[in-house]
Amino acid sequence: MSTRLYWEIGKRAFQRQLAYRTANLAGLFTNACFGYLRGSVFIALYQTERSIGGYDVSAAVTFTWVTQALIMVVFLWGWWDVEETIRTGDVVSDLAKPFSYLGFWLARDYGRALYHLLFRCCPILLIGEVMFGLRWPTSPVTWAALALSLTLAVAISFAWRFTLNLTAFWTTDARGIGGLASILSTLLCGLLVPLPYFPDTVRRVVEALPFAGILQIPADVFLERVTGAGLLLALGQQALWAGVMLGATQLLVMAATRRVVVQGG
């Protein structure tokens, strides 16, 4: 299948987002408020400690702002675009089109993610810099690694969200189940607290889970906490989970497609 097609699909998704300017402004305000509140809490934590879980105060504050900035890039909550097409029946026309159903949605999600990277993530990081002063990457290699890490982070989060949406083929309460599941991913992706803060035994498990690849790893790449071989390992972990999860999602799509019965008329 031609890459040109998916490129165009992604471009359209990017352009569609441009229409929601006011919503994006409201979201910017929200993320900035939470960045400020959480930043203040982290500064208070370091009144008595120099380092917690390997983060000093400036690393922790930067971590908070980077994760806030990325919430919409990886679309952490409330993405039900696919579920809606399943509920309304529009899914049938998408499945009938001569391209990969998974590829179609993935391309759309990358277009959307690029929009949020430019118009949500970048402004939030600038606001964080003005309010708190952030620790920025020092080497060009980091920026390149960050681009790759974010690409993989979107793939992992997409596969997770897409799977939750696909449950709508089997249940009418996909959003309820998805809501429960996203509490889990919120806790384990590093948004609320950096994963190395967890007790050491728990930490080893949660750092290996795919959710770490959604926010924790990109934020650590930004902070240059992982470099050299460690960086390759972190990116490798993301790539592995992205591959496994997208593969599983494709199998799920195939299983779901077999269930679809189109009523003629």
């Binding site: 400690e49 917690i52 309820g176 809501g179 429960l180 509490i183 609320l192 007790p199």
Partner: peptide
């Protein structure tokens, strides 16, 4: 649906409080 929603509303608060517990696992006082 109702049961899922109640459960979700319990778990959100629990998850947020768990974070506080995790933080206090690392430091004695805030």
């Amino acid at each position: 649906s109702f049961a899922t929603l109640v459960l979700a509303s319990v778990l959100v608060t629990l998850a947020e409080f768990l974070v506080v517990v995790v933080i206090f696992g690392r430091i004695p006082h805030l």
